[in-house]
Simulated scan of single mutants.
Amino acid sequence: MKPFIYNGLPSRAIFGQGTLSRIAEEVRELGCHRAVVLATPEQAGQAREVLAKLGELGAGVFAEARMHTPVEVTDAAMRHIEEFDADCTVAIGGGSTIGLGKAIALRTGLPQVAIPTTYAGSEMTPILGETRDGLKTTQRTLKVLPEVVIYDVDLTLGLPVGMSGTSGINAIAHAVEALYAKDRNPVVSLMAEEGIAALARSLPAIAKNPSDQDARSDALYGAWLCGACLGSVGMSLHHKLCHTLGGSFDLPHAETHTIVLPHAVAYNTEAAPEAMARIARALGSSDAAGGLYDLARAVGAPLALADIGMQESDIDRATEIATSNPYWNPREIEADGIHRLLCDAFAGRRPTSREVLDA
């Protein structure tokens, strides 16, 4: 066994069905009495339901969370936090809402309860990405890690098939990069492979039958593991590209991760053979990059950046942004290779490692 370092994260996770009923108890255990419930406009109704469950512990609702955590939205939320005299936040939703809770925690130190309703995994990470003036920046600090996460499978039963597929593959991306991270370790690698396998078997089942409770439970379990991977080790090329495309070109988060992932894996294939073997095994495929592309196609996810709003003229600018600051990756970051990667992702071509490397 090679030497390694594993850092456990100080968060409490509650998993099951009907677990939302514990919300008031969990807020009280944190020593809090005035919780503000956060949500997107689309999930305002769910936020009000959570507020009702909180009873006297609920202070109000702020349902204006937006994708990529724009600082102007956080500023507006901060005014409500002060108005409500809040002593904690409860975020119900996906990465947009949980990101807002993290942004508030960074500025105030308020404890957080996260209630994920998608498979994005942000709830398990000490990572915050914020967008200001069209640029998305990311920081890692325990200040933004939610203290409590409530996983309630019942809350995912109504998640649309399309969103289920893309948020699930977004979660897989965390585990994929954990397997070739610079600071990877055996514990996280076990979680990563298990998380990929759980999502790879459950997402196609959900696409066929969205009410399949066993598949929904497997998917949420896999998302939890993948999120924990993202929170424990560093990420590389894939996440850098997706932050660039999302923050600078306002592309939808989960769809962008879904489309880019097979191509980023293809780029790194020959530099990380052990990781690629584990990814392929978890997918039940002979090829990691191709297997990820086939999974996206099987769940009906978009396959091309052109289909989610990117313009071909944006590829040069995206390449420039993604290569402007050095960051670790198993394969050296080369502008020509990144440009070809983005061209392939833009067109939605099925990737192979040799196709990218020999371009």
Rank of each mutant, 00 (worst) to 15 (best):
P70M: 09
L155A: 02
V36Y: 02
A77L: 06
A277Q: 14
E26Y: 04
E147P: 01
P3T: 12
E56N: 10
Q139Y: 07
A13M: 09
A228E: 10
S96H: 06
D314F: 02
H238W: 01
S202T: 03
K53W: 08
V153Q: 05
L179P: 14
I150Q: 08
A228T: 15
L51G: 00
S164H: 06
V153Y: 05
I98P: 13
R79S: 13
F4V: 11
A347E: 14
S286L: 04
F249V: 13
R12D: 15
G109W: 03
V149P: 11
Q43C: 04
A264P: 09
Y151K: 08
G309T: 09
L38C: 09
G284L: 03
R22C: 01
G18E: 10
K240Q: 14
Y6N: 12
R201I: 13
R349Y: 11
E355F: 02
T108Q: 07
G121T: 12
N7A: 10
I172R: 01
E42W: 00
G290F: 02
R12Q: 15
N325V: 15
A76H: 09
T69D: 12
H33M: 10
S96M: 05
D314M: 01
F84H: 13
A77E: 09
A304R: 10
L51C: 00
N329Q: 07
P330N: 05
M124D: 13
E255C: 07
H174T: 09
P326F: 00
L203F: 01
Y293N: 06
F62S: 01
E42Y: 01
Y6P: 11
G348K: 02
R354P: 00
P204H: 04
H68G: 11
A347N: 04
Y327V: 00
A271D: 02
G291M: 05
P70W: 05
M310E: 08
A13R: 11
G158M: 02
L245T: 11
A207L: 03
L57T: 07
T319A: 15
A289P: 13
G195M: 04
F249Q: 14
P210G: 04
T131M: 05
R354N: 09
C242R: 03
H174K: 06
I23Q: 05
E64F: 00
D214N: 12
T125R: 06
A301T: 10
E147A: 14
P302K: 00
N268A: 01
R278C: 10
F15P: 00
G158T: 15
A171I: 00
P116W: 03
D316A: 15
V188A: 13
G246C: 07
D212S: 07
V233I: 03
R12H: 14
A280P: 13
E255P: 05
C32R: 15
S286V: 12
P160T: 13
T269W: 00
A39V: 03
A288L: 06
A197H: 13
Q311H: 13
D183Y: 03
E82P: 04
